[in-house]
């Protein structure tokens, strides 16, 4: 049975410039990983996030590649990303897959 995906609003804790790695780590540890462990899909919603940093995105998702492999991308969806956010997510994802 498919479980309902969990939606995480990044702006709520990270603000419109998502750069605080402590916040990224907390989202990863407290929200994303527990959801994946329960076989839930995760929607990372970047609505109202105007910009971010490579470090923030790395802290948010890089560990997921190590824990679950590249297939984790089948279980995460990135929503409402502007061009900057999209590009930084793609940079980190490509980097993690190349590093595997």
């Amino acid at each position: 049975m498919n479980k309902k995906p969990i939606s995480i609003i990044v702006y709520k804790t990270a603000g419109n410039f998502a750069e605080n790695k402590d916040v990224a780590r907390k989202i990863r540890q407290d929200r994303i990983i527990p959801a994946l462990e329960k076989s839930q899909e995760v929607i990372l919603d970047f609505q109202k996030v105007e910009s971010t940093t490579q470090s923030f995105i790395h802290a948010l998702i890089s560990a997921l590649f190590r824990n679950y492999g590249d297939d984790v991308l089948d279980r995460i969806t990135f929503k409402n990303c502007n061009e900057t956010v999209k590009k930084l997510i793609n940079i980190v994802i490509e980097y993690m897959q190349l590093s595997a």
């Binding site: 790695k21 780590r25 990863r28 490579q54 470090s55 790395h58 802290a59 890089s62 560990a63 590649f65 190590r66 980190v92 980097y95 993690m96 590093s99 595997a100």
Partner: peptide, 23 residues
């Protein structure tokens, strides 16, 4: 890029990619 004092592992640690100064 990819070099951080926190690890020799390519890809960095969970919290450090070693790319900040390169960017």
């Amino acid at each position: 890029p990819g070099i951080t004092g926190t690890t020799t592992r390519i890809g960095g640690t969970d919290d450090n990619a070693g790319a900040g100064l390169f960017f």
